[in-house]
């Protein structure tokens, strides 16, 4: 490998590393019962503290990388959801939280809903549950971050999340 190529590869690695370690999120409620919303908010509080994984909840879509979307997407919220998604700069990812955000869940077939976020915008990770526990949301987000990891590093996938106190990597696989 010649030098410029090596540099380029290193740069790409660096970008990926930064992206995985600093996913800023924005939260949009497209008509859920707000059960998922408070669980998302709960992941920021001392008990779960997503800041230890570099996740911050941002107010402006311009600053966000991950759109965390809940709810079955009502017709009114649809336009706003698309607009919020379009306002986000690339690269951007979408996480659909809650059963109703994936298929409509209990609201499936209601006259005013689009039955799921992926009917409106592309979704990268689905987190089922009604609502999912905050741990399950963290698990879903870590799934997303793992999927960003380049394939060659796939063997130490679980090493993405390092213990912020001891600096050690998990002994047991995530979600096994």
């Amino acid at each position: 490998m010649d030098l410029p190529k090596a540099w380029e590869a290193a740069l790409v690695d660096l970008k990926t590393w930064a992206r995985i370690n600093s996913p800023w999120a924005i939260h949009f409620n497209s008509g859920s019962c707000n059960g998922c919303d408070i669980e998302i908010l709960a992941t920021l509080t001392p008990r779960y503290d997503l800041e230890r994984l570099g996740i911050k909840l941002q107010g402006s879509p311009r600053h966000a990388d991950v759109l965390i979307c809940t709810g079955p997407v009502t017709r009114q919220a649809r336009e706003r959801l698309i607009r919020t998604y379009e306002q986000m700069p690339d690269p951007k990812f979408v996480v659909a939280v809650g059963s109703c955000g994936i298929t409509g869940g209990a609201f499936e077939g209601c006259y005013n809903v689009a039955n799921g976020v992926d009917k409106v915008i592309p979704v990268d990770v689905y987190i089922p549950g009604c609502p999912p526990r905050p741990e399950a949301i963290i698990f879903g987000v870590s799934q997303l971050l793992q999927s960003l990891q380049p394939p060659k590093k796939a063997k130490n996938r679980n090493a993405i999340v390092t213990n912020p106190i001891t600096g050690s990597t998990p002994k047991k696989g995530v979600g096994e």
Binding site: G71, T74, F107, C110, N112, V113
Partner: peptide
Amino acid sequence: LGFVHRGIEKA
């Protein structure tokens, strides 16, 4: 208001 109107009563 009305962004979260899902039509629950009708459903």
